[in-house]
Design a binder for these strands. Sequence first.
DNA 1: TTACTAATTTGTAATGATTATAAATTAGTA
DNA 2: TACTAATTTATAATCATTACAAATTAGTAA
Lengths: 143, 143
Amino acid sequence: MKPSFEDLKQELKIKNINLSHQRLKVLEYLAQKHCHPTADQIFTDLQKDIPTLSKTTVYNTLRIMIDAGLVSGITIEDHETRYDIVTESHGHFKCESCGTIFDFPIDIDSLVPGSLSNFKINNKNVYFKGLCPRCLSKIHEIK
Amino acid sequence: MKPSFEDLKQELKIKNINLSHQRLKVLEYLAQKHCHPTADQIFTDLQKDIPTLSKTTVYNTLRIMIDAGLVSGITIEDHETRYDIVTESHGHFKCESCGTIFDFPIDIDSLVPGSLSNFKINNKNVYFKGLCPRCLSKIHEIK
DNA sequence: TTACTAATTTGTAATGATTATAAATTAGTA
DNA sequence: TACTAATTTATAATCATTACAAATTAGTAA
Ligand SMILES: [Mn+2]
Ligand SMILES: [Mn+2]
Ligand SMILES: [Zn+2]
Ligand SMILES: [Zn+2]
């Protein structure tokens, strides 16, 4: 279930994280759009509302949210971190043509093999790569 | 089943990739150690044998092997790519304390959800993060 | 209001893995 | 040996992210 923006604000209050204008905007952005943006996309979009915004603030805020457990950084390509409001664990599909990241449901917990019984698992990630339906149909058109 | 070094050389011949001294050494390194090294680790270790080795050559070679499908680049952290001889698909566990990456068996194909039926999936990745048994026992000792 | 302090934001510089480029070396062939 | 193409090398460039210190803001008490 997707957390509401109010829920998130509440969570931050509980964790003693002050709610500045910038922090609220970053959080709101992630809560409303769920497009798995890069830090740069967040920065570019929010700059329209907050002309003085600095990219450092975006990075700082994302780090704070990650440490608080409200946001997760998704590493699929080694040169770009995407950000996601944390919900139940789910898989990610990245289209290699348009770059869009799609969520998909997956029962990750059932995957854990016996060979990891002596390991302490802190987080589990599943991602696929390929082509999304939209890009597949575009390729079809050209042919 | 792990491919032998000879198998790999054969594969490259089939794909029309020339076998230089440097390329053989990189491939041999990956085939013998299966420690999921970084490009820099490969470079540093091979430099002992090949004093003139350049880091660019290591990167070039890895790219060629990846394109040929013999090696895969593993992205777990956004700032370091690890390299692995391609075998059957398996999961990776990265210890957040010592950095070691462990293989574990996992039936990734059984995971694909119906919601992705219209997507073309090119590759599937599963990685966990946490603490390995060795590091867990070290924490225990200290307490 | 004013003064003071701590938190936050900002601009700028630094970092570090990877890539681009072009010159130097090597291998293969006639 | 001479020629050509492939490979390697050294060096510089790129670019996302982080480090740092100064500037701004928010909160609080006098
Ligand atoms: Mn997601
Ligand atoms: Mn592996
Ligand atoms: Zn697409
Ligand atoms: Zn460990």
